[in-house]
Amino acid sequence: MKMTGRRWMTALGLMLMTAACAAEDAPQSDKPTEEIALIKRDRTPVTEFTPEDIEETVDKLANAINRSGLEPIQMVVLLKHLSTFFEPIATGANRAMGELEAVGNVLGPTTQMVMDDGTTSQSLQNQQIANAIEDGAQGIGISPYDSLNEVSIRKAVESKLHVVTFDTDLKDSGRTLYVGAIQKEAGAKAAQALLDSKIGGLPPPPGTVVLHGDTSAQWYDGSQRTFGAMDALGKTGYTVQVVQAAFVNGQEDFDVGQLKSLIMSADPPVVGMIGMFNISYRCVMAAEAAGRPDMPIVTFDFDPKTVEYMQKERIKATIVQRQYYEGYLVPYILYGIEHIGLEATKEILRPLMVDENKMPDEHRVNIGVDVVPQDKFDEYNDFLDQIGSIQ
């Protein structure tokens, strides 16, 4: 797979890109115009995959910040790690912080869950939150490890910092907003793609659909995505069986073995599969191991192995979570909260937010997902290449 664009990753952090910016909007401030650095965005190229609603919302937010008289603020964006799935998030966050001339960094550990010195990724992230508080940060963006980071986030909120979660939510932590996909909706879209005769397509029921997912209470977002697919399929007459995905390093063979065993023993026979996470490609490996290379499969994310199987036409469609936009939105939201206030920022974000009349305590910015059929793979890959978002 072709890889273009600059990579800004390091083992424990990313260098902040900064750029002198200007804007056409006249600033509403007592300071002379020449003393105020204004935002000028480079909009994403328009393609069939460009989310125009997100682009227009960021334009409005940037214009409102400019009118307030832009003053740099200090922030930090914390990722679970800096590789694979999180690379596009880091790219987007760095780009936005550069446009905003933010003071701070995008940080995260390596892909190891346990560092050489015994530090876990979770404890490192908690330490980074504590450092941000001590250093006087005015905002934190974080992809948390569920409840393992809840206490640290609460401490940040108690210190008057606004915290925006992304990728994984912790709505009971006191965080200000969540940015990302609404996982139950995303799971339903995966089921719809598998059922769609133009994308996946299944023989009529009876038949079993296997979900490589997670139904545990420990991972709210993962289980919500899985339940979304289960609910959508439950109305169709197919039998649904879930294989609990194994993420621990070294468990790929075990994971594939679980899936293979179910494919070979299910009654009624397995007619399709959905991989709910970035290790979705294991569904293809299991189907081939079970002698079912023709199995219709829908996956999540754009992992390099998933891309490889899409090129081989073994995956009918993949659901991509727009990681680049997760990273890109967070710094703009933190700036907006600081400069124009939380309510004004939420009002600009309103077209993207979950209906707060129905769910007043949610405070979630829904950036949606992309459903990428196999026959649109090249076009989508080109779109990611243009925004520097290929993993």
Rank of each mutant, 00 (worst) to 15 (best):
T4W: 00
R7A: 07
A11K: 13
G13L: 03
M15Y: 11
L16S: 12
T18K: 07
A19H: 08
A22P: 03
E24L: 13
D30M: 05
K31W: 14
P32M: 06
E35L: 12
I36L: 03
V46M: 08
D53M: 10
K60C: 05
L61M: 12
N63M: 09
N63K: 13
R67N: 04
Q74D: 06
V76Y: 10
V77K: 07
V77T: 12
L79M: 11
L79Q: 13
F85C: 07
G98N: 02
E101R: 12
G108Y: 13
G108K: 09
T110C: 06
D116C: 03
T119M: 08
Q122V: 15
Q122T: 15
S123Q: 12
L124Y: 15
A130K: 14
E134H: 15
G136A: 01
G136V: 00
A137H: 10
I140S: 04
G141C: 06
G141V: 11
I142E: 01
L148R: 13
N149A: 03
E150C: 00
I153F: 03
V164G: 05
V164R: 04
L170N: 09
D172A: 10
R175W: 00
R175F: 01
Y178I: 10
G180V: 02
A181D: 10
I182P: 01
A188W: 02
K189D: 00
A191H: 01
S197T: 14
S197Y: 11
L202H: 12
P203I: 09
P204Q: 10
G207A: 00
T208N: 04
G213I: 15
D214S: 09
S216M: 04
A217N: 09
Q218S: 12
G228L: 10
D231A: 14
D231R: 11
K235I: 12
Y238H: 08
Y238R: 07
T239R: 04
F247I: 02
E252S: 08
D253K: 14
D253L: 11
V256H: 01
V256A: 04
G257L: 06
G257C: 03
G275K: 00
M276G: 03
F277S: 09
Y281D: 00
Y281S: 04
Y281R: 01
C283M: 14
V284K: 04
A289Q: 07
A290D: 01
R292N: 02
P293I: 01
D294Y: 00
I297P: 09
D301R: 02
T306A: 00
V307C: 08
K312M: 05
Q321L: 03
I333Q: 06
Y335S: 05
Y335V: 14
G336P: 08
E338Q: 11
G341V: 15
T345F: 11
K346N: 02
I348V: 13
M353V: 06
E356S: 08
P360C: 07
V365Y: 03
F377A: 01
Y380P: 00
N381F: 14
L384T: 09
Q386D: 07
S389L: 04
S389W: 01
